[in-house]
Design a protein around this nucleic acid. Structure first.
Lengths: 212, 212
DNA sequence: GTAAGCTTTTACCAAGCGGTTAAATTATCG
DNA sequence: CGATAATTTAACCGCTTGGTAAAAGCTTAC
């Protein structure tokens, strides 16, 4: 009799490996567009090209798929902040943090939206991760920024709100993509818009709007 | 025989007025937290303190409630941009636009989240409004900013991305409230965080991070 | 007060939902 | 090949969902 897989066996077959990846990929599509409650197992199964019971053979519940997806995304999502270097040059560290975050918005918009959906709906499934690991990491990096700020290497400012503003401006291009495209119209909606955004944000964070 | 109301009659009774308002208020709560697909008529009905069939007497479908809510929010939501004055002082116009948007994030977070949910999920129900009235308004104001920029009154920058960055940084405090609270912790999660945010954003947009 | 219209309730669908069961099928390995 | 385990399918279940029908209860204007 087949054991319900993942729960018990440590060994994973080739098919398990492949199908689980297929399901997670499909689920990322579906969850990132409809949120958790708005997504159905049927949708995910269809997107993965298999039947619902077949999908449920690999993941016991809808929540289990979502859980694994969130865990995976959280790790990679915070990578740019993790490499933020206390010993680097403040200005270029911030500059490249912005660039990396913007690249992630461009290259992994679904991951950004999955996360945004979760937060927007009150983060019922990831509250602990936010208050634990995320807060710890931000606290650490905010400390670094504060040091720079006090040493006069960058302007005096609240490091937390600086981080928030970098998150929001960059993720905006993934999360609000439809709106950005609608407003920019056909003309500026090509790939060049990320270059324009990068140029603008770099200038904003470095110089503000004041004429110089 | 009772006509299904809204569709036909122009006259609205006192009770209609009151109940519709009650429903919209409840629906704003529910939709802003769960998105369209994630919300149920039962949830809304319960939040409004009435039975589902009773609610459906006032709004014929779930979509009709959402529609009216979105229409209403869209109007008020763009008000701050509308009052953006071409003849005003550039620096103080931008400054007060930021302040107004931040106040809206503070005072109307549900409206912000309703909108964010809609955009995040691909804006299937408001694409036309985005490409029409919204784009028109943004185009107009972007023109104003470009004029200021070219006249050397503010730094040279892409006006569209400037508007996006103001939207994203301010709305972040409504849409990602849970995350902001989680990261800031008990200490800075009081009402003061909006003051801190205002101070930071004002400085960011006016001066950037460069030491002066 | 009473009749007309407005509002609410009770009872009900058909479809969609997350998930289960068990049998049929296929892959793997000695 | 044959046996064993892994995978897939068909059939199903109880609950929730958006929405309807019809009758009962309530307001309002005459």
């Amino acid at each position: 009799m087949a054991i319900s897989r993942a729960a018990k066996t440590q060994r994973r077959t080739r098919i398990q490996e492949e199908k689980e990846e297929l399901i997670l990929e499909a689920a990322l599509d579906v969850f990132s567009q409809n949120g958790f409650r708005g997504s159905t197992i049927d949708q995910i199964a269809e997107a993965a090209g298999m039947s619902k019971p077949n999908l449920l053979y690999y993941f016991r519940t809808k929540e289990a798929i979502h859980r694994q997806l969130i865990d995976r995304v959280l790790t990679t999502w915070l990578e740019p902040l993790r490499v933020f270097d206390a010993d680097g040059d403040p200005e270029s560290e911030i500059r490249s943090y912005i660039r990396r975050k913007l690249e992630m918005a461009r290259d992994f918009p679904r991951e950004s939206r999955l996360f945004a959906n979760e937060i927007l709906q009150g983060a019922p499934r990831i509250e602990d991760e936010l208050k634990g690991p995320l807060k710890a990491l931000v606290d650490e990096k905010a400390g670094v920024i504060r040091t720079w700020s006090r040493a006069g290497k960058i302007a005096r400012c609240d490091p937390y709100h600086l981080i928030f503003s970098i998150w929001s401006t960059t993720q905006h291009y993934a999360d609000f993509d439809v709106q950005v495209r609608a407003v920019l119209g056909q003309a500026h909606s090509g790939e060049g818009r990320f270059e324009d955004a990068a140029r603008f944000l770099e200038q904003l964070f470095m110089d503000g709007l004041r004429v110089r």
